[in-house]
Design a protein around this nucleic acid. Sequence first.
DNA 1: AATCCGTGGGT
DNA 2: TACCCAAGGAT
Length: 352
Amino acid sequence: MHAPSTLSAKQIQHLRHTIMQWQTQHGRHDLPWQQSPSAYSVHVSEIMLQQTQVSTVIPYFERWMQRFPSLDALASASEDDVMAQWQGLGYYSRARNLRKAAAHVIAEHGGEYPDCLQALQAIPGVGRYTAGAIRSFALQQYGPIVDGNVKRLYARLFGIDGEPNSSAFNRTLWQLAEQLTPHNASHIYSQGVLDLGATVCTKSQPKCSECPVQSECVAHATGRIEQLPNPKKKREKPFRVGHFSWHQPNQHIHLVKRSSPGIWGGLWCLPELPDAPKDAELAGEFIHQFTHYTLHAKVWRASTPQHLSVKDDNSVGYLATQLFDLNQLDQTGLPTPIKQFIQDRIALKRHT
DNA sequence: AATCCGTGGGT
DNA sequence: TACCCAAGGAT
Protein backbone atom coordinates (compact mmCIF):
# COMPACT_ATOMS: atom_id res chain seq x y z
CA MET A 1 0.00 0.00 0.00
CA HIS A 2 1.26 3.43 -0.88
CA ALA A 3 1.15 5.56 2.25
CA PRO A 4 2.50 9.03 2.95
CA SER A 5 5.71 9.37 4.88
CA THR A 6 5.44 11.14 8.21
CA LEU A 7 4.14 14.67 7.88
CA SER A 8 6.45 17.56 8.67
CA ALA A 9 5.56 19.95 11.46
CA LYS A 10 5.20 22.68 8.87
CA GLN A 11 2.77 20.61 6.76
CA ILE A 12 0.71 19.81 9.82
CA GLN A 13 0.46 23.43 10.91
CA HIS A 14 -0.53 24.55 7.46
CA LEU A 15 -3.22 21.91 6.94
CA ARG A 16 -4.66 22.46 10.42
CA HIS A 17 -4.84 26.19 9.97
CA THR A 18 -6.34 25.99 6.49
CA ILE A 19 -9.01 23.45 7.44
CA MET A 20 -9.94 25.25 10.67
CA GLN A 21 -10.22 28.60 8.93
CA TRP A 22 -12.34 27.04 6.20
CA GLN A 23 -14.61 25.44 8.80
CA THR A 24 -15.15 28.78 10.53
CA GLN A 25 -16.09 30.50 7.28
CA HIS A 26 -17.70 27.75 5.17
CA GLY A 27 -18.44 24.81 7.46
CA ARG A 28 -21.74 23.76 9.00
CA HIS A 29 -22.83 25.56 12.17
CA ASP A 30 -26.60 25.10 12.22
CA LEU A 31 -27.03 21.37 12.77
CA PRO A 32 -29.34 20.63 15.73
CA TRP A 33 -26.65 18.85 17.75
CA GLN A 34 -24.28 21.80 17.37
CA GLN A 35 -26.56 24.05 19.43
CA SER A 36 -25.40 24.02 23.07
CA PRO A 37 -23.89 20.55 22.85
CA SER A 38 -23.66 18.45 26.01
CA ALA A 39 -21.83 15.16 26.33
CA TYR A 40 -25.22 13.44 26.28
CA SER A 41 -26.58 15.24 23.21
CA VAL A 42 -23.33 14.73 21.32
CA HIS A 43 -23.36 11.06 22.31
CA VAL A 44 -26.94 10.63 21.06
CA SER A 45 -26.26 12.42 17.77
CA GLU A 46 -23.05 10.51 17.08
CA ILE A 47 -24.71 7.14 17.62
CA MET A 48 -27.60 8.12 15.36
CA LEU A 49 -25.19 9.37 12.70
CA GLN A 50 -23.35 6.05 12.48
CA GLN A 51 -23.88 4.81 8.92
CA THR A 52 -26.84 7.18 8.63
CA GLN A 53 -27.12 10.41 6.68
CA VAL A 54 -27.54 13.77 8.40
CA SER A 55 -30.90 14.53 6.76
CA THR A 56 -32.31 11.23 8.01
CA VAL A 57 -31.08 11.76 11.56
CA ILE A 58 -32.34 15.31 12.17
CA PRO A 59 -36.03 14.53 12.90
CA TYR A 60 -35.08 11.50 15.00
CA PHE A 61 -32.63 13.59 17.04
CA GLU A 62 -35.22 16.30 17.68
CA ARG A 63 -37.83 13.79 18.82
CA TRP A 64 -35.33 11.88 20.93
CA MET A 65 -34.16 14.94 22.84
CA GLN A 66 -37.79 15.84 23.56
CA ARG A 67 -38.65 12.35 24.76
CA PHE A 68 -35.34 11.57 26.55
CA PRO A 69 -33.89 15.01 27.41
CA SER A 70 -31.33 13.67 29.89
CA LEU A 71 -29.21 10.68 30.75
CA ASP A 72 -31.58 9.92 33.64
CA ALA A 73 -34.63 10.08 31.41
CA LEU A 74 -33.06 7.59 29.02
CA ALA A 75 -31.79 5.26 31.73
CA SER A 76 -35.21 5.03 33.35
CA ALA A 77 -37.07 4.41 30.07
CA SER A 78 -38.22 0.93 29.08
CA GLU A 79 -36.50 -0.82 26.20
CA ASP A 80 -39.79 -0.82 24.30
CA ASP A 81 -40.07 2.97 24.59
CA VAL A 82 -36.50 3.37 23.38
CA MET A 83 -36.99 1.00 20.45
CA ALA A 84 -40.21 2.77 19.44
CA GLN A 85 -38.30 6.07 19.26
CA TRP A 86 -35.58 4.43 17.14
CA GLN A 87 -38.10 2.76 14.84
CA GLY A 88 -37.09 3.23 11.21
CA LEU A 89 -33.48 4.31 11.82
CA GLY A 90 -32.07 0.81 11.48
CA TYR A 91 -29.08 -0.87 13.15
CA TYR A 92 -31.17 -1.35 16.28
CA SER A 93 -28.28 -2.50 18.46
CA ARG A 94 -27.39 1.19 18.53
CA ALA A 95 -30.61 1.94 20.42
CA ARG A 96 -30.22 -0.98 22.82
CA ASN A 97 -26.62 0.03 23.49
CA LEU A 98 -27.52 3.69 23.94
CA ARG A 99 -29.94 2.75 26.70
CA LYS A 100 -27.31 0.49 28.29
CA ALA A 101 -24.80 3.33 27.93
CA ALA A 102 -26.97 5.65 30.00
CA ALA A 103 -27.05 3.10 32.81
CA HIS A 104 -23.30 2.58 32.41
CA VAL A 105 -22.42 6.28 32.73
CA ILE A 106 -24.65 6.59 35.79
CA ALA A 107 -23.38 3.45 37.49
CA GLU A 108 -19.69 3.74 36.62
CA HIS A 109 -19.22 7.52 36.49
CA GLY A 110 -21.97 8.98 38.69
CA GLY A 111 -23.84 10.39 35.72
CA GLU A 112 -20.91 12.50 34.45
CA TYR A 113 -19.32 11.38 31.21
CA PRO A 114 -15.64 10.42 31.62
CA ASP A 115 -13.20 12.51 29.63
CA CYS A 116 -10.50 10.00 28.71
CA LEU A 117 -10.73 8.14 25.43
CA GLN A 118 -10.22 4.76 27.05
CA ALA A 119 -13.12 5.21 29.48
CA LEU A 120 -15.33 6.59 26.71
CA GLN A 121 -14.67 3.54 24.56
CA ALA A 122 -15.75 1.30 27.43
CA ILE A 123 -19.28 2.71 27.06
CA PRO A 124 -21.52 0.24 25.19
CA GLY A 125 -21.75 1.18 21.51
CA VAL A 126 -18.93 3.73 21.71
CA GLY A 127 -15.91 2.90 19.57
CA ARG A 128 -12.81 4.80 18.56
CA TYR A 129 -14.63 7.26 16.29
CA THR A 130 -17.45 8.08 18.72
CA ALA A 131 -15.07 8.45 21.66
CA GLY A 132 -13.04 10.96 19.66
CA ALA A 133 -16.17 12.80 18.59
CA ILE A 134 -17.45 13.13 22.17
CA ARG A 135 -14.02 14.40 23.28
CA SER A 136 -13.93 16.93 20.44
CA PHE A 137 -17.48 18.18 20.21
CA ALA A 138 -18.70 17.94 23.80
CA LEU A 139 -15.56 18.31 25.87
CA GLN A 140 -13.58 20.39 23.35
CA GLN A 141 -10.51 18.31 24.11
CA TYR A 142 -8.12 16.46 21.80
CA GLY A 143 -10.24 13.87 20.03
CA PRO A 144 -9.06 12.49 16.68
CA ILE A 145 -11.78 11.05 14.44
CA VAL A 146 -11.83 8.86 11.33
CA ASP A 147 -15.13 8.20 9.62
CA GLY A 148 -16.20 7.76 6.01
CA ASN A 149 -15.78 11.46 5.25
CA VAL A 150 -12.31 11.59 6.76
CA LYS A 151 -11.21 8.41 5.00
CA ARG A 152 -12.24 9.83 1.64
CA LEU A 153 -10.64 13.21 2.34
CA TYR A 154 -7.31 11.83 3.58
CA ALA A 155 -7.14 9.11 0.93
CA ARG A 156 -7.33 11.81 -1.75
CA LEU A 157 -5.33 14.49 0.02
CA PHE A 158 -2.38 12.17 0.73
CA GLY A 159 -2.88 9.80 -2.20
CA ILE A 160 -3.40 6.74 -0.02
CA ASP A 161 -3.68 3.80 -2.34
CA GLY A 162 -4.81 0.99 -0.07
CA GLU A 163 -7.42 -1.68 0.26
CA PRO A 164 -10.43 0.03 1.91
CA ASN A 165 -11.05 -1.12 5.47
CA SER A 166 -7.87 -3.19 5.56
CA SER A 167 -5.99 -2.89 8.83
CA ALA A 168 -3.06 -1.20 7.09
CA PHE A 169 -5.36 1.36 5.49
CA ASN A 170 -7.16 2.11 8.73
CA ARG A 171 -3.91 2.28 10.71
CA THR A 172 -2.52 4.86 8.28
CA LEU A 173 -5.66 6.99 8.50
CA TRP A 174 -5.75 6.96 12.29
CA GLN A 175 -2.06 7.89 12.44
CA LEU A 176 -2.74 10.85 10.19
CA ALA A 177 -5.75 11.88 12.27
CA GLU A 178 -3.72 11.70 15.47
CA GLN A 179 -0.97 13.84 13.97
CA LEU A 180 -3.23 16.41 12.34
CA THR A 181 -5.78 16.92 15.11
CA PRO A 182 -4.72 19.90 17.24
CA HIS A 183 -4.74 19.81 21.04
CA ASN A 184 -6.33 23.25 21.13
CA ALA A 185 -9.76 23.82 19.53
CA SER A 186 -9.86 20.19 18.41
CA HIS A 187 -13.58 20.51 17.75
CA ILE A 188 -13.09 23.05 14.97
CA TYR A 189 -10.61 20.84 13.15
CA SER A 190 -12.75 17.73 13.61
CA GLN A 191 -15.87 19.53 12.39
CA GLY A 192 -13.77 20.88 9.54
CA VAL A 193 -12.75 17.49 8.17
CA LEU A 194 -16.32 16.21 8.49
CA ASP A 195 -17.73 19.24 6.68
CA LEU A 196 -15.05 19.17 4.01
CA GLY A 197 -15.74 15.51 3.29
CA ALA A 198 -19.51 15.91 3.37
CA THR A 199 -19.87 19.09 1.31
CA VAL A 200 -16.73 19.48 -0.86
CA CYS A 201 -14.71 16.27 -1.06
CA THR A 202 -17.81 14.26 -1.90
CA LYS A 203 -17.93 10.71 -3.21
CA SER A 204 -19.03 11.75 -6.67
CA GLN A 205 -18.41 15.06 -8.42
CA PRO A 206 -16.28 16.62 -5.69
CA LYS A 207 -16.08 20.41 -5.74
CA CYS A 208 -12.31 20.67 -6.03
CA SER A 209 -12.51 24.31 -7.13
CA GLU A 210 -13.99 25.15 -3.71
CA CYS A 211 -11.50 23.07 -1.74
CA PRO A 212 -9.15 24.95 0.60
CA VAL A 213 -6.47 22.24 0.36
CA GLN A 214 -6.68 21.63 -3.38
CA SER A 215 -3.10 22.77 -3.89
CA GLU A 216 -1.85 20.16 -1.39
CA CYS A 217 -4.01 17.35 -2.74
CA VAL A 218 -2.06 14.41 -4.19
CA ALA A 219 -5.10 12.94 -5.94
CA HIS A 220 -5.94 16.24 -7.59
CA ALA A 221 -2.34 16.75 -8.72
CA THR A 222 -2.16 13.26 -10.21
CA GLY A 223 -5.66 13.18 -11.69
CA ARG A 224 -6.81 10.39 -9.41
CA ILE A 225 -9.72 12.10 -7.69
CA GLU A 226 -12.16 9.63 -9.22
CA GLN A 227 -10.02 6.62 -8.31
CA LEU A 228 -9.42 7.39 -4.63
CA PRO A 229 -10.34 6.02 -2.24
CA ASN A 230 -10.18 2.65 -3.94
CA PRO A 231 -13.58 0.94 -4.39
CA LYS A 232 -14.57 -1.78 -1.97
CA LYS A 233 -14.86 -5.32 -3.20
CA LYS A 234 -18.51 -6.17 -3.69
CA ARG A 235 -19.94 -9.50 -2.73
CA GLU A 236 -22.87 -11.36 -4.07
CA LYS A 237 -26.11 -10.63 -2.23
CA PRO A 238 -27.86 -13.85 -1.21
CA PHE A 239 -31.61 -14.36 -1.51
CA ARG A 240 -33.52 -15.65 1.48
CA VAL A 241 -37.14 -16.61 2.07
CA GLY A 242 -38.77 -15.80 5.41
CA HIS A 243 -42.12 -17.12 6.63
CA PHE A 244 -44.25 -15.06 8.99
CA SER A 245 -47.59 -15.69 10.65
CA TRP A 246 -50.58 -13.33 10.61
CA HIS A 247 -53.03 -13.77 13.45
CA GLN A 248 -55.53 -10.93 13.82
CA PRO A 249 -58.35 -11.51 16.31
CA ASN A 250 -60.83 -8.59 16.48
CA GLN A 251 -58.74 -5.54 15.57
CA HIS A 252 -55.63 -6.81 17.33
CA ILE A 253 -52.45 -8.18 15.81
CA HIS A 254 -50.31 -10.87 17.35
CA LEU A 255 -46.61 -9.92 17.58
CA VAL A 256 -43.49 -11.37 19.19
CA LYS A 257 -40.44 -9.51 20.49
CA ARG A 258 -37.36 -10.47 18.52
CA SER A 259 -34.24 -11.58 20.37
CA SER A 260 -30.92 -9.81 20.24
CA PRO A 261 -28.39 -9.93 18.85
CA GLY A 262 -29.84 -10.63 15.46
CA ILE A 263 -31.77 -8.91 12.71
CA TRP A 264 -34.43 -6.54 14.09
CA GLY A 265 -33.40 -7.48 17.65
CA GLY A 266 -35.58 -5.82 20.28
CA LEU A 267 -38.36 -4.97 17.83
CA TRP A 268 -41.88 -6.42 17.78
CA CYS A 269 -42.58 -8.44 14.67
CA LEU A 270 -44.91 -10.95 13.10
CA PRO A 271 -43.84 -14.38 14.42
CA GLU A 272 -41.25 -15.88 12.09
CA LEU A 273 -41.83 -19.52 11.23
CA PRO A 274 -39.20 -22.17 10.48
CA ASP A 275 -41.06 -23.13 7.33
CA ALA A 276 -44.22 -22.57 5.32
CA PRO A 277 -47.19 -23.98 7.30
CA LYS A 278 -49.15 -26.75 5.63
CA ASP A 279 -52.57 -25.97 4.20
CA ALA A 280 -52.23 -22.31 5.16
CA GLU A 281 -53.55 -19.39 3.16
CA LEU A 282 -51.10 -16.79 1.96
CA ALA A 283 -52.07 -13.39 3.38
CA GLY A 284 -49.47 -11.57 1.32
CA GLU A 285 -45.79 -11.29 0.51
CA PHE A 286 -43.12 -8.69 -0.11
CA ILE A 287 -39.48 -8.26 -1.08
CA HIS A 288 -37.15 -6.33 1.19
CA GLN A 289 -33.57 -5.33 0.41
CA PHE A 290 -31.04 -5.49 3.24
CA THR A 291 -27.41 -4.51 2.83
CA HIS A 292 -26.31 -8.14 2.92
CA TYR A 293 -29.23 -10.06 1.50
CA THR A 294 -32.60 -9.85 -0.16
CA LEU A 295 -35.55 -11.06 1.89
CA HIS A 296 -38.61 -12.58 0.27
CA ALA A 297 -41.18 -12.51 3.04
CA LYS A 298 -44.27 -14.70 2.87
CA VAL A 299 -47.03 -14.00 5.38
CA TRP A 300 -49.42 -16.84 6.23
CA ARG A 301 -52.83 -16.60 7.85
CA ALA A 302 -53.02 -18.37 11.20
CA SER A 303 -56.21 -19.15 13.07
CA THR A 304 -54.29 -19.58 16.33
CA PRO A 305 -51.39 -17.52 17.73
CA GLN A 306 -47.93 -18.79 16.82
CA HIS A 307 -45.83 -18.54 19.97
CA LEU A 308 -43.02 -20.48 18.37
CA SER A 309 -40.65 -18.31 16.41
CA VAL A 310 -37.34 -18.66 14.61
CA LYS A 311 -34.51 -17.23 16.69
CA ASP A 312 -31.28 -15.69 15.47
CA ASP A 313 -29.29 -18.92 15.60
CA ASN A 314 -31.97 -20.55 13.45
CA SER A 315 -33.34 -22.45 16.42
CA VAL A 316 -37.01 -22.25 17.30
CA GLY A 317 -38.08 -20.94 20.67
CA TYR A 318 -40.67 -19.14 22.73
CA LEU A 319 -40.34 -15.40 22.72
CA ALA A 320 -42.24 -12.67 24.48
CA THR A 321 -45.61 -12.44 22.82
CA GLN A 322 -48.39 -9.84 22.87
CA LEU A 323 -51.57 -8.74 21.18
CA PHE A 324 -51.41 -5.16 19.92
CA ASP A 325 -54.32 -2.89 19.13
CA LEU A 326 -53.98 -1.93 15.49
CA ASN A 327 -54.26 1.74 16.50
CA GLN A 328 -51.41 1.28 18.98
CA LEU A 329 -48.72 0.37 16.47
CA ASP A 330 -47.56 3.97 16.14
CA GLN A 331 -46.05 3.77 19.61
CA THR A 332 -44.47 0.37 19.02
CA GLY A 333 -41.12 -0.44 17.45
CA LEU A 334 -41.66 -2.68 14.42
CA PRO A 335 -39.33 -3.41 11.50
CA THR A 336 -40.10 -0.88 8.78
CA PRO A 337 -41.18 -3.36 6.06
CA ILE A 338 -43.31 -5.36 8.53
CA LYS A 339 -45.03 -2.23 9.75
CA GLN A 340 -45.55 -1.14 6.16
CA PHE A 341 -47.06 -4.50 5.27
CA ILE A 342 -49.44 -4.44 8.23
CA GLN A 343 -50.58 -0.89 7.58
CA ASP A 344 -51.06 -1.54 3.87
CA ARG A 345 -53.21 -4.56 4.62
CA ILE A 346 -55.30 -2.71 7.18
CA ALA A 347 -55.88 0.14 4.73
CA LEU A 348 -56.77 -2.34 2.02
CA LYS A 349 -59.30 -4.11 4.23
CA ARG A 350 -61.05 -0.83 5.03
CA HIS A 351 -61.77 -0.25 1.38
CA THR A 352 -63.21 -3.70 0.67
C1' DA B 1 -10.05 -10.77 9.53
C1' DA B 2 -14.49 -11.28 8.05
C1' DT B 3 -19.20 -10.87 8.85
C1' DC B 4 -23.27 -9.07 10.68
C1' DC B 5 -26.28 -5.31 11.57
C1' DG B 6 -31.30 -1.42 8.48
C1' DT B 7 -32.87 1.99 5.95
C1' DG B 8 -32.89 5.47 2.67
C1' DG B 9 -30.49 9.27 -0.17
C1' DG B 10 -28.05 10.17 -4.38
C1' DT B 11 -26.87 9.12 -9.02
C1' DT C 1 -32.78 0.35 -12.36
C1' DA C 2 -29.18 -1.02 -9.67
C1' DC C 3 -25.62 0.22 -7.08
C1' DC C 4 -22.84 2.67 -3.65
C1' DC C 5 -22.60 3.90 0.83
C1' DA C 6 -23.80 7.05 4.88
C1' DA C 7 -20.56 11.30 11.51
C1' DG C 8 -19.26 2.61 12.87
C1' DG C 9 -19.31 -1.05 16.45
C1' DA C 10 -19.37 -5.74 18.10
C1' DT C 11 -18.13 -10.33 17.64
